[in-house]
Amino acid sequence: MAKVAVYMTGGIAMYKAVQVVRNLEKEGHEVRVIMTKNAERFVTSNTLAALTKYPVLDNLWSKENEASVPHVHLAHWTELALVVPATANFIAKMANGIADDAASTTMLATSAPILIVPAMNDQMWNNPATQRNLQFLKNNQVQIMEPAVGMLAEGYAAKGRMPEPDQISAWVEDLLNKKEILKGKTIVVTAGGTEEAIDPVRFIGNRSSGKMGIAIAQAAANMGAKVKLVYGNVTIPLPQDKNIELFPAPSSEDMLMQVKQEFNRSDILIMAAAVADWRMKKVADHKLKKQADQATLELTLVKTKDILREVAKQKNPDQVVVGFAAETNDLLKNAEKKLREKGADMIVANDVSQNVFGSDKDKVTILRQNGTIEEWPEMSKKEIASKLLIYVNSFIQK
């Protein structure tokens, strides 16, 4: 059972939100409520306090809160945040990091998964500003339940009506169950680009940012897995999560050794790192200086060991290996060849010729050994990470 913080904002659908709180409690969840002052124009805080047996947070400056930091305490307590109903105003505050009352301040301090149930007039829902804010929240892993088409407070039928409480409760339960689908699993994820030394100063590298691998690691941890993140050169902050163990592996040889060691005790390997294909035959022990009469520099390179192939050929029948194929041309042809030759269970193929490195979005195609090919539409890397893990889990369950 989860600790659920329910945020209530000012809309006529507040009367339905009370039933959502009751449903959550019937499912055994511990519920605490945060209300905006406008929400209290429709339902009093006394009603929610009586239902939950906890005081409602609606004011950071009340006498009882003078000696505490209630919004931070509640944010730390929260395991799941649910905004119901979510007005266009509160959605805008969330998307833009505004913290000007108890509800928005607590939300800004919350690191738990967030679900929102918008409810508003259809014109407000369709406004480009609202849709932009919703897309931003989606890109940042906020789950959004689409409003229903039905009779609005204005007296006509259109999209914007809040879904029924039982539908909302079922949606929350479904997402809570999905959150733990990888509980008990150990997953090795690689991220970033490797660096192959030329001399003590220079190296051969690539443009990988590590965003995809890090997104996969974080999504796996959110789904209950124990994650071992083996990373090379990354350009974004590493995740700080108690379920993610970090292993630096600057070179392809370092990454091979670390992956082999960790995968022996793991269930799934997802090779999202951009591993160098070539390294120096001999690394110079001093900086290679440019000479006045020197017009060229010749480097002798040798192939690196293929981590995906090395690990896949040693995996047990109950282990799953997922590789990535970053291609600039002949995407499916090259990905199919990689899948066939390297022995992975599936390949995630993506076209990196169009500024994918460093981008927050990507478009991938999934290829499996049984010949199945699934082309996914463009989405954020965080969305791809979650969808990929759900897909891999369903593959394991078969």
Rank of each mutant, 00 (worst) to 15 (best):
I236W: 08
R368E: 13
D101M: 06
K3A: 03
S353Q: 14
L175R: 09
A92G: 14
V56P: 00
N65T: 06
R22A: 12
P85A: 15
K138H: 12
I396P: 04
R132L: 14
N177G: 05
Q131W: 02
P317H: 15
L301V: 07
T9D: 11
A13N: 07
K303A: 15
V302C: 15
M151G: 07
A217C: 09
A81T: 01
V283A: 15
G10W: 01
R265L: 08
A335R: 03
N23A: 13
N264V: 02
D318L: 11
M379H: 10
K242G: 08
M145Y: 02
N233C: 10
I168F: 04
N222M: 10
P55W: 09
M255V: 01
V69E: 15
G11M: 05
L339R: 09
L82Q: 06
E27C: 14
E79K: 13
Y391P: 00
G184M: 08
A335L: 07
M379C: 11
T47Q: 09
I91W: 01
A75Q: 04
F263Y: 05
A249M: 12
L301P: 02
G192I: 01
A17H: 02
A103Q: 03
L299K: 04
M212K: 07
E383P: 00
S353L: 13
Q314K: 15
N233W: 02
T78Q: 05
Q143K: 10
G155R: 11
M223P: 01
H76P: 06
P128Q: 09
Q240S: 14
E40K: 13
L176C: 15
E262Y: 02
I116W: 03
V142C: 14
N140T: 04
V56H: 03
A103S: 08
N127Y: 06
L175I: 06
A335C: 06
L339C: 12
I114F: 13
V227L: 08
T36K: 11
E245W: 00
F395V: 10
Q319R: 13
A112T: 06
K381C: 06
E341K: 11
N96P: 01
L134A: 08
K211R: 12
Q397G: 06
S251Y: 05
V188K: 11
A50F: 03
E245G: 01
G358I: 04
A217V: 00
S209Q: 07
K226S: 13
I347M: 14
K26P: 02
Q369N: 12
D101N: 10
T106F: 11
I214Q: 07
N393I: 07
M346N: 11
D285F: 07
K138V: 06
T110H: 04
V364H: 02
E30C: 13
